[in-house]
Design a protein around this nucleic acid. Sequence first.
DNA 1: TATCAAATTTAGAATTATTCTAAAAACCAT
DNA 2: ATGGTTTTTAGAATAATTCTAAATTTGATA
Lengths: 133, 133
Amino acid sequence: MKNETHDITHLLVKHDIRPTKIRRAIAGLLFDGHDKHVSVDDVIDLARRQKIRTSVASVYNTLNQFASAGLLRRVTVEQGRAFFDTNLSAHHHFYFEDEERLEDIPTEDINVSGLPELPQGRTIKSVDVTIRI
Amino acid sequence: MKNETHDITHLLVKHDIRPTKIRRAIAGLLFDGHDKHVSVDDVIDLARRQKIRTSVASVYNTLNQFASAGLLRRVTVEQGRAFFDTNLSAHHHFYFEDEERLEDIPTEDINVSGLPELPQGRTIKSVDVTIRI
DNA sequence: TATCAAATTTAGAATTATTCTAAAAACCAT
DNA sequence: ATGGTTTTTAGAATAATTCTAAATTTGATA
């Protein structure tokens, strides 16, 4: 068994996700050491190119599971399509409107200060900064 | 003619939008001096309650026109529904995930610093900060 | 004020992204 | 190998939005 395959399996198990065949295959496409922002269609295309046989429903299921498990971050910049970000470290985004494409902004660069008081009983789930360009 | 009706007509004309009946009616619902975040369904409900006869397509057309003309700001926080914000001054948002509801954060409170260099030939279209709580 | 071409509005069809359903396949502890 | 549980899948269902083309409104002009 290849080393990266083993790593992928371990990554899934660590996140309480049963490492089934298609989950490992999709994880393999996403977690290759390079940060990426993918739409569902991107993943379907990637899978097709690698001759991974799967279904639209499974891609949705899998990406949603990965996002709930904290393996992916869902990024909402368009009302239509959903994007999933493999970069889990704190960072923000440029959104290239004409290309419908996201790019990371390293956190060190950007700083949000003066967060106001939260309403009673609330805690911050995320702070998302999107710069549309 | 009531004063506010005249104001609404003028507001539309100033933004190069022909002040037709339904545009004035929808503008009247939205620009009443109170900041609000509305979905398309909210507007349809508001219209129905005020006995304004219109269609779903017209509400979409009108809100899209208002947004392009700069009378409304489109806020994207959910992949499903679109929100339109009548508050045009620079500000950011709390998003109450469980209630699917937006609330303004006054700009004075929050500050984004250290914006990085933009890629060649790009200009900032908007800087959106969403705090999910 | 009546006329008319251009713009707008509308109902319903079409499109798109996503979720649901329930049957088939894969999984894994025994 | 067996069998109960979990996944996967194809296709149907749903939801938000856009498109289409016919009907209506608008406003400039006679």
